[in-house]
Amino acid sequence: MNVTIPKTDHELGSTSVVLLGLIVLLGLAILTGALTVSYATYLIALSGMYVLLALGLNVQWGYGGIINFAVVAFWGLGAYVAALATARTSPLGLEWHPLFALVVAIIFSVIAAILVGLPAIRLRADYLAIATLGFSEIFRLLVANETHITAGMAGLAGIPSVLEDLPFDTVTTNLLVVAVAGALVFLFLRRIHRSPWGRVMQIIKADEDLAESLGKNAFSFKMQTFVLGCVIMTIAGVYYAHFIGYVDPTDLDPLETFFVWVAVILGGSGSNRGAVVGAFILVAVLEGTRFLTDFSIFAALSTGPLRLLIVGVLIVLIMRFKPEGLYPPRDELIWPKSQTDTEGQS
């Protein structure tokens, strides 16, 4: 088998061009007064959170070929554990230190991922999609109705902001934390993807029977990717709770799951830098629709449906015309052919 060395410089080059472009746009928007600084930093922090979510899903879908339609539930698990453990208004009245809550959230996430994954990972792809969506909805209903634990529809306010102990203002801390978390996760994922573990994962995704015949326990490897992805989503949720300071059950709308899916397939399934770019574009689309209604032709429309329409059209168009996404993974071991096919692009 032919192992090709990814062209790291080139990869990072095109990714940074896109990100730089978005940042320049953002800068221009601030300068022209279209955006305030605080809104702009909010956008970047929000993008950082979606980067984490997209990276988490990319581990599962891109590396492992596992369909997970419960992204919002694992994210919500993080947000709710953080909120319940640290918020002043929490019915549990714990008021823990956020870092301690983070550790607890990760433990819960691992347990939940194992409980969901153990029976479900073996399912056929379409069944897994439906089962995880069902699980996600059960979680949402529990959070909405077990009011004595979760405060129900009233939601939880008064969640302390991220790492208040750091000597920066809240906005800077928010950006710093998500940038560091995103970078760490990104580097970690890139490292494991190129490790022997990552190679086995690629073989499993391409041909599970082949992997089994090579003596690799595909199920165990898939479980590991599933748990890893869920933990990353949970971390994103913990971050969100501290960043926004308020959570309620409407945050658990399954629609969020599909937003993350859009980021991953738009970026290119299996590609981490694709997930990063996809997440930024997603936030640009979600938040950009706010401004579209300023234009007269869209004036009559409200933001909500317009956003749904754009996301829906985006999904249909990507799947039809560019199913491999903007940044198809190029460091493949298995398909030398696809390697040469994508050579000319990006």
Binding site: D126, A129, F258, W261, I265, P305, L306, R307, L308, L309, V311, G312, V313, L314, I315, V316, M319, R320
Partner: peptide
């Protein structure tokens, strides 16, 4: 399957 979700969003938004 993934496309059908996009279709669902299009119906819903329209």
């Amino acid at each position: 399957l993934i496309t059908s979700f996009g279709v669902a969003l299009i119906y819903r938004s329209l």
